[in-house]
């Protein structure tokens, strides 16, 4: 931060440009969204938002995103641990591949996974005989959401694990803690905030995800229909106000989850220090 802030040029122009873009691109559409929702009476709003079909989509979007985010925490912790702590053949290769879900268009992910998981697909031929239906099922939704959110946990935990450097662990070990105790008492508390951030990012991403899910879910109302799909369905019936109402519920859910985690993170930081 500059001590004497206005020595550097370009404050007015860069601030002005930033604000103009944000207003036109971000604030204006958000306001339009609220305006549209305000054209509904409270009863109409509830009628759009609280139908059986809509509630089923929230439950599914919420549940599938939460399960996928939880799986991502476990997988992400494993991957971050292995990549930071061990030196082994192919480590850099694995490390680079972790980012693929960020780089790969989600439509491709949905296409590939639905083809892999159908009865005669590479994975489906083993799973379907066991009764595990990956394609056109809720399980399929969880699987693609795991794929899409995979890098979040790894990339938030990795730098923290790197910065720990093992001194606290050594100290714990010297004081007679078992490996297991060190894990739970020393490592886990230090990693907890980053794990939660990773969970929240993965969860919020899952709530809004559309591209990959529509390929694999089959989009059956009450069964495998996610909230974003219902918004699109309402839009295609030109029911703009209803679509907007559901969109506001969805936005509220993801903003609330991000805010909750922000709060938890701050609280656990305070305990840690």
């Amino acid at each position: 931060m500059a001590k004497s802030p206005r020595v550097l040029p370009g404050f007015e122009i860069s601030l002005g440009y930033t604000l103009t873009v944000l207003t036109l691109l971000l604030v204006l559409p958000l306001v339009a969204c609220l305006f549209k929702a305000a054209t509904l009476t409270p009863a109409e709003f509830l009628g759009a938002v609280w139908t059986k079909r809509a509630v089923a989509t929230y439950m599914l979007s919420f549940g599938a995103s939460a399960v996928a985010a939880l799986i991502n925490v476990l997988i992400g912790l494993l991957l971050a641990w292995v990549l930071v702590r061990y030196d082994f053949y192919g480590r850099r290769f694995l490390d680079a591949l972790i980012d693929l879900p960020f780089a790969l268009p989600t439509a491709v992910a949905g296409l590939v996974y639905s083809a892999l998981l159908v009865k005669n697909g590479w994975y489906g031929q083993f799973l379907v005989p066991l009764g595990i239906q990956g394609a056109y099922s809720r399980l399929g939704i969880v699987i693609v959401l795991v794929f899409v959110g995979l890098p979040f946990v790894v990339r938030t935990v990795q730098p923290v694990l790197e910065s720990l450097e093992g001194e606290a662990e050594e100290a714990a070990a010297m004081l007679g803690a078992s490996r297991w105790q060190t894990m739970w008492r020393v490592l886990f508390p230090a990693l907890q905030p980053s794990l939660m951030t990773g969970f929240a990012l993965s969860f919020a991403r899952g709530l809004g995800e559309y591209g990959s899910v529509i390929f694999i879910s089959g989009n059956m109302p009450f069964k495998t229909e996610i909230a974003p799909f219902l918004i699109v369905a309402r839009l295609e019936q030109f029911a703009y106000a209803e679509a907007t109402a559901i969109a506001i519920v969805l936005m509220g859910m993801s903003l609330a989850s991000l805010a909750l985690v922000n709060w938890l993170e701050r609280r656990s930081r305070r305990y840690a220090s």
Binding site: L30, A32, C33, G208, Y210, G211, P228, I231, V232, M251
Partner: peptide
Amino acid sequence: LDVPFAISPVVVGLMFVLL
């Protein structure tokens, strides 16, 4: 700046349709 990360892309599309 972070708001676009918190909004479902479908909702983004909807907002532009409304405008």
